[in-house]
Amino acid sequence: MLQDYFSYDERLGIFLPSLKLDWEDYSFDQQQKILTEWEYIRGEIPDLIKRLEFSINDKQEKLNHESDFVLSCKLNSDIADLASIINDLWIWFRSNQQMSNDTKIHG
Rank of each mutant, 00 (worst) to 15 (best):
M1W: 12
M1P: 06
L2V: 11
L2F: 10
Q3V: 04
Q3K: 08
S7W: 14
Y8P: 03
Y8K: 02
D9R: 06
E10Q: 06
E10R: 03
E10A: 03
R11F: 08
L12R: 01
G13D: 03
I14D: 04
F15T: 02
S18G: 14
L19D: 02
L21F: 03
L21P: 04
E24T: 09
D25I: 13
D25G: 11
D25P: 07
F28T: 15
F28Q: 14
F28W: 02
D29A: 13
D29K: 13
D29Y: 03
Q31S: 13
Q32L: 14
K33W: 10
E37G: 05
E37D: 13
I41D: 05
I41L: 07
R42E: 06
G43P: 05
I45M: 13
I45R: 10
P46I: 04
P46F: 05
L48W: 04
K50D: 05
S55A: 07
S55G: 04
I56Y: 00
D58N: 11
D58E: 14
D58W: 08
K59Y: 03
Q60M: 03
K62Y: 00
L63N: 08
H65S: 03
E66T: 08
S67H: 09
S67L: 15
S67C: 10
S67I: 11
S67W: 15
D68R: 06
D68P: 01
F69E: 15
F69N: 15
V70P: 04
S72E: 07
S72Y: 02
S72A: 11
S72N: 07
S72F: 01
C73Q: 13
C73T: 13
K74D: 14
L75C: 00
L75Y: 02
L75M: 04
N76P: 00
S77Q: 06
S77V: 06
S77A: 12
D78T: 04
A80L: 10
L82G: 01
A83L: 00
A83W: 00
S84W: 12
I85S: 01
N87A: 11
D88T: 05
D88C: 02
W90Q: 00
I91C: 07
F93R: 09
F93I: 09
R94N: 07
Q98G: 06
S100E: 12
N101L: 15
N101V: 15
N101Y: 15
D102H: 15
T103A: 09
T103W: 12
K104P: 07
K104V: 10
I105M: 13
